[in-house]
Amino acid sequence: MQDVKNLNVSRPRLRGPTWMALAASVSLVALAGSAHAAESGADFTGIWLNDAPSSVLATVDGTPVPLNAAGKSAFAKVKAGLKSGKEIDAVKRYCLPEGVPRLMQSAYPMQIVQSPSQVTVIHESHHTFRIILIDGTHPADDDILASYMGDSVGRWAGTDLTVDTVGFNASEPLDAAGLPHGEKLHITEKLSRSGDGRQLVDLITIEDPEFYTKPFTVKASFTARPDLTIEEYVCGEPHRKIAKAVKP
């Protein structure tokens, strides 16, 4: 890691009292959810490629992102900072995880692996993964380890998967433009197959009353790419030229 000594980002804070308490609580909080096979559900298994990767979020209905006064001020500050170099995009500079929702907009492929109790999304970008516990419940607020990925639980409604994610840290903006968010960020996603079944659509609703006047929805749409594999991605090493590599 170059520039490690200059790295000045906040670490995910442990909101519980101590590590020891966490250790004890993990066994209590992490057990919720059923390991029984879901009655409903769809098969999202496979390799998926984002149809329109973007590092900047745009609402699905084309309306401006509903920033409130605090949001506007924070956004302006980050935007100016990015321009002047006072702020840095820690994802690119320090190899930090893109986190949710930015990760879902990546140009690199992702793989979904499913079992009745867990949907796992493995991303090539920054070699990260999301674990979605089916019919799980979030740990209590005090027991959540604030993270880039947040804590995700999922529920099948017919062939749609609803994913509810909380427990984010506030270390990074929502996107590369610098849209702010705080630790109260709450993301709800609806994943469903569309078109001839070769598409997967993720409608991502972002809610954070600290910086936004109301929830807003962005969309990520993916195409099944069984011809692709997830390759090794090591930050700091050259990666494959993704646009060329994924040309159908």
């Binding site: 890691m1 490690v4 000594k5 790295l7 000045n8 980002v9 906040s10 670490r11 995910p12 993990v26 066994s27 992490a30 057990l31 959810g33 320090y94 190899c95 930090l96 995880p97 109790s117 867990q118 674990i131 516990l133 799980g136 380890l145 993270s147 880039y148 990925m149 804590d151 270390s171 930050c235």
Partner: peptide
């Protein structure tokens, strides 16, 4: 393990190695 979640561990996060002076 009985738990169902892997927690997040990000090495690049303010992690310092022994070769870099701790400020």
């Amino acid at each position: 393990l009985k738990e169902r979640r892997l927690l997040e561990y990000v090495c690049a996060e303010n992690n310092r190695d022994a070769a870099v002076p701790v400020e």
